[in-house]
Simulated scan of single mutants.
Amino acid sequence: MRIVNIHEAKTHLSRLVEQAAGGEPFVIAKAGKPLVRVVPLEEPVVKPAPSRFGFLRGHLKVPDDFDTMGQDEIEKMFYGEK
């Protein structure tokens, strides 16, 4: 495990933290004496969201003419009266 003196750790903290988060832990030492170990946190367990696909199945009915519903009114709005 890499040992870094406290001055170097202060100077390059962002880079060292990124490396530790990426799986490269290190030890911070003062006057050659190890003080702390920096290691990545364990990944939190994330539950997958419940599937929303099909949650209204059986509650709604899509009409057969869904793709042409209101076609006359829409054409009147775009093209005016025929």
Rank of each mutant, 00 (worst) to 15 (best):
M1Y: 02
R2G: 07
R2Q: 15
I3G: 08
I3V: 13
I3R: 07
I3Q: 08
V4T: 05
V4N: 03
I6V: 14
I6L: 09
H7K: 09
H7Y: 03
E8N: 08
A9L: 05
K10S: 13
K10V: 10
K10L: 15
K10R: 14
K10A: 14
T11N: 13
T11W: 04
H12R: 15
L13F: 10
S14K: 15
R15P: 00
R15G: 10
R15Y: 05
R15W: 06
V17F: 05
V17N: 02
E18A: 15
Q19W: 09
Q19L: 12
A20R: 08
A20S: 09
A21T: 08
A21R: 15
A21P: 00
G22N: 15
G23Y: 05
G23S: 11
G23V: 09
E24R: 14
P25C: 10
P25M: 07
F26Y: 06
V27S: 12
V27H: 04
V27W: 00
V27F: 02
I28L: 02
I28P: 02
A29Y: 00
A29D: 01
K30S: 12
K30Y: 05
K30N: 09
A31C: 01
G32P: 00
G32I: 02
G32E: 01
K33Y: 06
P34Q: 04
P34N: 02
P34F: 01
L35S: 02
L35N: 01
L35T: 01
L35V: 02
L35F: 01
V36A: 12
V36N: 04
V36P: 02
R37H: 03
R37D: 00
V38P: 05
P40M: 08
L41V: 10
E43G: 11
P44F: 02
P44E: 12
P44V: 11
V45C: 01
V45K: 11
V46Q: 05
V46H: 08
K47D: 03
K47F: 06
P48V: 12
A49V: 10
P50Q: 10
S51I: 09
S51T: 13
S51M: 02
R52Q: 11
G54N: 07
G54Y: 06
F55L: 14
L56I: 02
L56C: 05
R57D: 14
R57Q: 15
G58L: 10
H59G: 08
H59S: 11
L60K: 08
K61V: 12
V62Y: 07
V62W: 07
V62S: 09
V62N: 04
P63V: 05
P63K: 04
P63W: 01
P63I: 03
P63G: 06
D64W: 06
D65T: 11
D65G: 13
D67M: 11
D67F: 13
T68F: 09
G70Y: 03
Q71V: 07
Q71H: 10
Q71A: 14
D72M: 05
D72C: 02
D72P: 00
E73A: 15
E73K: 13
E73P: 00
I74P: 01
I74E: 00
I74R: 14
E75Y: 10
E75Q: 12
E75V: 10
E75L: 15
E75P: 03
K76F: 12
M77K: 13
M77A: 12
M77R: 14
G80F: 07
K82Q: 05
K82M: 08
K82F: 04
